Simulated assay, not measured.
Amino acid sequence: MRVLHTADFHAGRNLRGFDRTPEVHEALTEIAALARSERADAVLVSGDLFDTVNPSAEAEGAVFDFFLRLRDASIPAVVIAGNHDSAARLQGFAGLLGWVGVQLVAQPTTNPLDLIRTVETRGGETLTVGALPFLSERRLVKAADVMGGDVGSWRQKYREGMGFFLRKLAEGFRGGSVNMLMAHATMDGAVPSGSERTMQFDLLNAYTLSPLQLPSGAQYVALGHVHKPQQSSDMPLAHYPGSVIQLDFGEAGEKKQVNLVEVEAGRPARVTAVPLASGRELRTVKVNLDQLEPRLAGLAGFTGLVKVVVRAPSGTAMPGLKDRVLRLVPNTLAVELEALQEDLAQPELRREGLSLPELYEQFWRERRGELPEDLRAAFREADMGAGEEAV
């Protein structure tokens, strides 16, 4: 059996006023073609179809066109809602999407076994998927804050609640079937892309799952939420395929992909990363003000999207800077200023090569003025004593 795993479309993403939806549409068209050319028996989409809970008509059109292309290729799909999706809105589409071969799980029910989805492939094999959509922990966080509770205990309660669902989903796995789990969640140790939005902060502060909580009966765990492609667990095998395009400058340089999972009932899965070519490349360029023109001239011919960070001494007046940058690089989306560190901009404040007493004297001078002689002598004496002990 061949299963194509993808996630994190974020259709409707707007970057610094620039709509990325056409690029997402291009990527989804590429993925649908890959599903056909790679002879996929099914496609798994692990959440965040949309970037907002109220997506534009163009964003909806991009996603629905993807599912229609899969329908035309007779490839079924199983889809879950992510944290960026409106679960209620997606639930309203579930019936219609079912007519084109998409089994959508947007909201958990009181019976976790309602989250089991089964696909009968053209080859006569059965794929059983435990589909767990995003479960929000925000109410727990709010309750902990309001009630003064121990946040650590709430995190443990989240793990226990997720563990309950995961165990129940594992009860739906079947002998003689390929068994997979889908989840839109953060695993311990997940490495973020460094997204400019809140992703990195969320991952550092998020409620997380341990790989030990993943059911051993799952031959593959199809994860979504983290935009950087990565393997999250060996036993069972769990992967994030990542976002389908470089969504913001925090993802600049990342190679995007989908995962092709080859697996038979009762046997280990094999995962192959299939690279994606769609989406404009993002690039961040840092340049000193006095090198602005020659450095940016090197971007001639670059067709991606650019963020330019201009470094200059603090307090430097730079009227018309954005216009200067745009004349050189019209595809610039953002121009930011970064003050040079004073110790680098002013030679008299450089710290490299200074002894500890000299550093201390400079520190005192920068904040209080001239260092009193008695303090200077005391610090030098203490520094000499430390050196003798080291010898």
Score class of each variant (00 low, 15 high):
Gln103Glu: 12
Gly172Phe: 05
Ala222Phe: 06
Gln230His: 07
Glu381Ser: 06
Asp202Ala: 11
Leu127Gly: 06
Leu44Gly: 10
Ala185Trp: 02
Gln362His: 00
Pro357Arg: 00
Ser355His: 02
Leu49Pro: 03
Gly369Cys: 00
Gly253Met: 10
Lys255Phe: 01
Thr303Cys: 03
Leu166Trp: 08
Val329His: 08
Gln291Ala: 14
Pro192Thr: 08
Glu137Pro: 07
Thr272Gly: 00
Pro108Asp: 07
Phe302Arg: 03
Asn331Ser: 12
Asp248Ile: 10
Ala317Ser: 13
Pro112Ala: 03
Leu344Gly: 01
Ser46Gly: 02
Thr6Asn: 02
Glu120Met: 13
Arg71Ser: 15
Arg311Pro: 05
Gly301Pro: 14
Val141Phe: 11
Asp150Met: 02
Leu349Met: 00
Pro372Val: 09
Asn54Thr: 10
Gln91Ala: 15
Asp41Glu: 13
Thr109Lys: 05
Ala87Lys: 13
Arg138Val: 12
Leu371Val: 00
Leu337Ala: 13
Ile31Val: 08
Ala334Gly: 13
Asn205Gly: 02
Arg20Ala: 09
Leu354Phe: 00
Val151Asn: 01
Gly279Arg: 07
Arg270Tyr: 09
Ala300Phe: 02
Val102Arg: 03
Ala143Ile: 10
Arg174Trp: 01
Val146Gln: 04
Glu352Tyr: 07
Glu373Ser: 09
Ala27Cys: 13
Arg36Leu: 13
Gly47Thr: 04
Thr128Ile: 15
Thr6Glu: 00
Ala378Arg: 13
Ile116Cys: 14
Val78Ala: 09
His184Thr: 08
Asn14Lys: 15
Leu344Ala: 08
Gly353Tyr: 03
Thr121Gly: 11
Met199Cys: 03
Met1Asn: 05
His227Asp: 14
Val79Leu: 14
Leu96Glu: 03
Ser210Leu: 12
Ala273His: 09
Gly92Thr: 01
Leu132Gln: 14
Pro112Arg: 10
Ile31Ser: 07
Leu260Asn: 10
Asn331Gly: 05
Val43Asp: 06
Ile245Gln: 06
Gln230Tyr: 08
Ala33Cys: 05
Gln346Thr: 07
Gly148Cys: 10
Met235Ala: 12
Ala87Phe: 07
Leu96Gly: 04
Lys256Ile: 01
Leu212Pro: 00
Leu28Ile: 06
Gly369Tyr: 00
Arg283Met: 15
Thr284Leu: 02
Glu38Lys: 11
Leu15Asn: 12
Val129Ser: 13
Gly304Lys: 04
Asp48Asn: 12
Gly189Pro: 12
Pro313Met: 15
Ile116Trp: 12
Pro313Thr: 11
Ile245Asn: 05
Gly47His: 07
Phe67Glu: 01
Leu292Pro: 07
Asp383Tyr: 04
Leu359Ile: 06
Val63Tyr: 06
Leu28Phe: 09
Asn259Leu: 14
Arg167Val: 02
Asp248Glu: 06
Leu15Tyr: 11
Ala32Asp: 12
Leu292Phe: 11
Val78Thr: 12
Phe201Asp: 11
Arg327Lys: 12
Asp145Pro: 01
Asp145Ile: 15
Phe165Cys: 05
Glu381Gly: 01
Arg69Asp: 11
Leu132Ser: 06
Gly320Lys: 15
Glu388Gly: 00
Gly189His: 07
Thr198Ala: 06
Asn331Glu: 08
Glu336Trp: 04
Pro330Lys: 03
Lys286Ala: 14
Glu366Phe: 00
His84Pro: 07
Ala297Asn: 10
Glu196Val: 03
